Simulated scan of single mutants.
Amino acid sequence: MTNQDTHVIVFHGTTSAFDKSIQEHGFQLKPELRPSHQMNVEEQHLCSFDGTYVALDRDTARYYAKSAVEKNGGEPRIYAFRVPLSVIVPDEDEVHFALTWNLANELGFDENSDDDVQLGTIPWSIDVAKRAVAAISQCFGMDEHQIGKAAAHLNAMIEPVIAVWDRDLYFFHPDSNDKGWSSPNWVRKLVSLDGGYELYREHMDQFVGCMRGASPETCPAGSEAFKGRVIVPFGFDGSHGVEIIGYGTIADPFEDYSNFDSYLGTELSLDPEFINEAKNSRQPALRFG
């Protein structure tokens, strides 16, 4: 395995209102304020999990930086991280994107049918869960052991909604609502049940944990759209192998701080030319004599 396979350059958008906290405590698993959680307050079917959300794409980080400013004031800030893939899990939205087609298909969905309503012909079971997970396992780098663990967590989430399911397969299908594939109807129903939100948080977190270290290059949405979550705390000391290599403005994530000591240039990056230019422009001038 090459270094390019094991490390990525990712970006995180936030606000200068959190400067003091980040400088003193780094990026925590459960910060007192979390913009991604604040954005979901009115959408109970969405939730944020512990860790630091990141993206390969700078534009995604810019969007979250602006949203963080709207909620907490300050100025938009972008961080650049060098992160081992071993401490990243895919964003849960990406997993829903991959999973929903397979859930519908395993329960009897016919993609060639023109029917507005298709009813499930296969009863839900742990075996259905395993087949659906196996269908996406290659995308997320899961072996047989991880497939089994993930299927158990998927089954724990879906069993409660099967009791209230009317067998309409669009309940699981990604095109079943106009809110986007990141929030399928079965999740909306689950979190509306008594205790469902807590159950979803527990098992969805462990479900994506089975995909820890998956390469963005194989994820269904593609590396250009990859979002993930760093699941260890880290700061400017390089703890857990996560290095902060830049901090700055939306225009220049390296404007206020840059440290390329750990950067090799072989890491997976959407824009290596941009990173290399930033590195070269901040090299100390060579002195002669």
Rank of each mutant, 00 (worst) to 15 (best):
V164G: 03
V164A: 11
W165Y: 06
W165I: 09
D166N: 15
D166C: 07
R167K: 15
R167M: 09
R167P: 00
D168E: 11
L169A: 04
L169C: 04
L169W: 01
L169N: 05
Y170D: 14
Y170S: 11
F171I: 06
F172M: 06
F172I: 06
F172K: 07
H173D: 09
H173F: 04
P174Y: 01
P174I: 03
P174E: 01
P174A: 03
S176R: 14
N177A: 13
N177R: 10
D178P: 01
D178F: 10
D178I: 08
D178H: 14
D178L: 14
K179I: 04
K179H: 10
K179L: 15
K179W: 09
K179V: 03
G180E: 06
G180H: 03
W181T: 09
W181M: 08
W181E: 11
S182F: 07
S182L: 00
S182Q: 14
S182D: 10
P184R: 01
W186I: 02
W186D: 01
W186C: 04
W186G: 01
V187I: 15
V187S: 01
R188I: 06
R188V: 05
R188M: 12
K189S: 08
K189P: 00
L190D: 06
L190F: 06
V191Y: 01
S192H: 09
L193E: 10
L193D: 03
L193I: 03
D194V: 05
D194Y: 08
D194H: 11
D194L: 07
G195V: 04
G196M: 04
G196T: 08
Y197H: 13
Y197P: 01
Y197R: 14
E198C: 01
E198P: 02
Y200V: 00
Y200M: 11
Y200K: 09
R201K: 15
R201L: 11
E202T: 13
E202C: 04
H203E: 09
H203I: 01
M204A: 13
M204R: 14
M204K: 13
M204I: 08
D205Y: 11
D205N: 12
D205K: 12
D205P: 00
Q206R: 15
Q206I: 00
Q206D: 10
Q206T: 01
Q206A: 13
Q206H: 11
Q206K: 15
F207W: 05
F207I: 02
V208Q: 03
V208M: 03
V208N: 05
V208G: 06
G209V: 00
G209Y: 04
C210H: 02
M211K: 02
M211S: 02
M211W: 01
R212F: 02
G213L: 11
G213P: 12
G213M: 09
A214D: 06
S215Q: 09
S215V: 05
S215I: 04
P216H: 06
P216C: 08
E217V: 10
T218N: 15
C219L: 10
C219A: 15
P220N: 11
P220I: 11
P220M: 11
P220T: 10
A221E: 15
A221R: 15
